[in-house]
């Protein structure tokens, strides 16, 4: 079980303060939803958790130790787009994570190791419901299927933390509802902590166990550069949990 501590983290680009005084203690197996206005620094926060960028001040601890300064296999990610590799089939896309880990020089597995890796990959592909599309290339998949693939691909390294940056932002509402069921199931069946950025409050309340809102406390134009966004609300969500376990869906647009 993984705990994450974000301690007084600031992020500045040149002279612009994007985030300031962000502190969070994340309990094990949380499903954290991050919402906020466009440009307020949600993706920036996620990139810091990923290790793609470093905080300007403050520190992020994962299970008590500082986060490594680069992305690694214990933190999986799904972006809104471009998360899968266009030159690999569904099966190859998911197997890739195992090959990277087990074959540092060749980058490929052979013989029995390869068979075992493929069998494991196929298990994850079935988990996300893509077993019909094993040999297809991403260009032949719909947007929803591509995101399912990206999730399977991220899960195969068994990450402690899964980071989702508006993963369903580009999908139709019906498909989005299917994806919600999928991530809830995958999260429940695992021990991982999930961080997900969303623009949709009903989605956030439906999925999350905890809702974080980011906003600037000062928003006058002349202050924009010097004051960053920070956490304005930190809401534990319990009300919907029973509903979720019974699989009752919130109506579309049912906010709060």
């Amino acid at each position: 079980m993984t705990t994450i501590s974000i301690r007084d983290v600031w992020k500045e680009y040149d002279d612009q303060v994007v985030l300031e005084r962000v502190s969070l203690e994340i309990e094990p197996h949380a499903f954290v939803l991050i919402v906020g206005a466009s440009g307020c620094g949600k993706s920036t926060l996620l990139r810091m958790l990923l290790g793609q960028e470093q905080p300007s001040r403050g520190e992020i601890l994962i299970d008590g130790t500082p986060l490594p300064p680069e992305p690694g296999p214990d933190r999986g990610v799904v972006f809104q787009r471009y998360s899968v590799f266009p030159h690999l089939t569904v099966r190859e896309n998911v197997t890739l994570g195992l090959e990277f880990g087990q074959a540092p020089i060749a980058g490929r597995l052979f013989g029995g190791a390869r068979k075992r890796a493929i069998a494991e990959a196929e298990h994850y592909i079935e988990l996300v419901g893509l077993e019909q599309a094993m040999d297809k290339y991403p260009s032949a998949l719909s947007g929803g299927m591509q995101q399912r693939l990206a999730i399977a691909q991220a899960l195969i390294t068994k990450p402690k933390v899964l980071l989702l940056d508006e993963p369903f932002g580009a999908l139709d509402p019906g498909i989005r509802a299917d994806m919600h069921e999928l991530v809830i199931k995958l999260w429940q069946d695992s021990k991982m902590t999930v961080f997900m950025v969303s623009h949709d409050l009903s989605e956030a309340f439906y999925l999350g166990t905890r809702l974080i809102t980011l906003d600037r406390r000062r928003n006058r134009p002349e202050e924009r550069e010097r004051y960053g966004a920070s956490i304005t609300h930190d809401i534990p969500i319990t009300r919907r949990r029973e509903n979720r376990h019974r699989g009752i869906k919130l109506a579309e647009g049912d906010v709060l």
Partner: peptide, 27 residues
């Protein structure tokens, strides 16, 4: 090649050599 792909490869445990041979070169 989108930056996302490179980051994604890193989260899958790829080193620089693997990124070149399995992500960049084939594309």
């Amino acid at each position: 090649i989108p930056r996302e792909q490179i980051v994604k490869a890193e989260t899958l445990g790829a080193n620089s050599w693997q990124i070149i041979t399995r992500v960049v070169l084939p594309q």
